[in-house]
Amino acid sequence: MDANMIISLHNVNFYYGPSRALNDISMDFPEKQVTALIGPSGCGKSTLLRLLNRMNDLIIGTRVEGKVLFEGKDIYDGHVDPVEIRRKIGMVFQKPNPFPKTIYNNIAYGPKLTGANAGDLDALVEQSLKQAVLWDEVKDVLNKSAMNLSGGQQQRLCIARALAMKPDVLLMDEPTSALDPISTAKIEELIEELKKNYTIIIVTHNMQQAARISDSTAFFYIGNLIEYNKTEKIFTNPDVKQTEDYITGRFG
């Protein structure tokens, strides 16, 4: 792999109170590629994802060991501002969670907080919605509530909202599990488009989705990274038997 590694984990352990959810994880995420995280429920995918932009800080009693480097710098260093990290490493969740505001303000809210000037906002809203392939559907109703959008549209709005912060990395936790097949296809198409400019790390329970959209796939099992490989390799001929048993749906 010649790609630049934008995020690197070195021997990372993660604890919720006394219980360890991730064991000695070392892995690199290539820039401007899609990496899929797969594995059975409870194996630590969401934990790992949240660890990458310090979302886990918001859960009390958690603890990280090891190093999480973003562009070579440890994001858990004392003087690093977690808010700044979360701006650069945006997140999209399983259930679309628009703010109960207008479509326009859903996008403009974050940039306003971080001091974008009002004149630039219109352009930023338009650009973000276009990037999320939502603009044509909502350009005439920007001042209507976001809550009136369909689930698939809401999810693209959340992606637009994340993009408006001009992140480098997008973390997505099962972003299509609540969506119908057409909306899912739209999001997948969008991901393919976005990876030209962004690094995307996505958790999914849909094996076919991981196979379709990702360049690399990491398989986790009870807090351990079992196999991390090119997606094509994982889905045609994985190196580890456990991976094969999982993706082919054999008894655990």
Binding site: F235, N237, E244, T248
Partner: peptide
């Protein structure tokens, strides 16, 4: 079934 890996092969 959309088989993968050994099943696909």
């Amino acid at each position: 079934r959309q088989p993968t890996a050994i099943d696909l092969r």
